[in-house]
Design a protein around this nucleic acid. Structure first.
Lengths: 182, 182
DNA sequence: AACTTTATTAAGAATTTATTTAACGTTTTA
DNA sequence: TAAAACGTTAAATAAATTCTTAATAAAGTT
């Protein structure tokens, strides 16, 4: 059955298998199904214009416009220059290592920054409570407990920042080579 | 102003700052706002029953039930045994390293597995096309191009699996210590 | 400078997702 | 064994996203 297929159709079907898998796992990156499909489609194209995207996915142009913008934000798609064409052209980042680095570094930095800021503020408050003469021993004990819990958790956020640094600098690939020599 | 606050109120406000930050960054873990809030709330509690959660967050019991289940799935909440109580009790995982490991290993393994399976199938198809005598040179060249692109991308998924292994085994902490000796 | 072409923004429609109320099943206790 | 306490499932409602059509803005061409 599949042996009798036209080769050109078989190529499309093979691509679709991969497109489906990529799109399905793109939820990890917090993008909509439309954006996931778009990226996966672009993965097999050199570059695309908004109109080509619309035709290929059968969706509206503004939808493509916002999807492609979101994909640009997480650096999975880059704008490309095409001289002679007035249409904007976009290309998918095909190196998954680069996508991985851009996305997770961005997210982890945000997580560490937000939480560390909140922790610092909260810890100051807990210190105030501990120093406050109107605090009962019970309350002081509580404030200390929370202070210590937060202090402990800072280790994690610092580690997350270290992880980001080692990914950005590429040092992590010394520890975990891209191409392990079997 | 804030100096004149009652210490017990100040403690609650300090906790709320951290709760807000945690809940806000929980979108990274693909959970609903309710689940994010719930986890962040539980982070400052020893353990909680569904009724306590409902009271604390002012939400319905089924909502707590489904939120807590989702949090269990990504191993951010564990069921705890409390003898003498008919109510189920749950405790938040307070070690962020463990949450990190459980969540990302699970997700990355899924990503690698799904995509590698699709890639293997697609590559077989491309080989068929290349071997097919009815394929034009143009089509063969195309199939080869896609085959190579997929072959290249496998490096990434293998690396992702290696990363998961090194996290699961704890080897990554030899490279990136939790507690860097300044 | 007016006219095209293209992309983006805004507003509205539709779908999806999240949440709640109500009903059900199960376990425990009296 | 009946009643009560819990948790979960199902159906319905509410809320938030996402998508589309229409309008606007921006850039390029004649």
């Amino acid at each position: 059955m599949s042996d009798t297929e036209k080769p050109s159709i078989k190529i499309e079907e093979a691509k679709d298998k991969v497109i489906g898998a990529i799109a399905e796992t793109m939820d990890l990156y917090g993008v909509t199904p439309a954006a996931g499909n778009l990226y996966a489609t672009m993965y097999f194209k050199d570059q695309m214009t908004l109109d080509e995207m619309r035709t290929e996915l059968g969706m509206s142009k503004p939808s493509m416009s916002t999807s492609v913008r979101r994909l640009q934000e997480i650096e999975m798609v880059k704008k490309t220059f095409t001289r002679g064409s007035r249409k904007h052209t976009y290309a998918a980042e095909k190196n998954f290592f680069r996508s991985f680095m851009a996305f997770y570094c961005q997210m982890w930095e945000r997580e560490a920054k937000m939480n560390l800021e909140a922790i610092e503020e909260a810890q100051e408050d807990f210190i105030d409570v501990i120093k406050d003469s109107s605090s009962t021993p019970d309350i002081v004990a509580n404030a200390k407990k929370y202070y210590d819990q937060l202090e402990e958790s800072k280790t994690y956020y610092h580690w997350l920042n270290d992880l980001v640094d080692s990914i950005r600098s590429g040092k992590i690939f010394e520890f975990l080579p891209k191409d392990p020599h079997d």
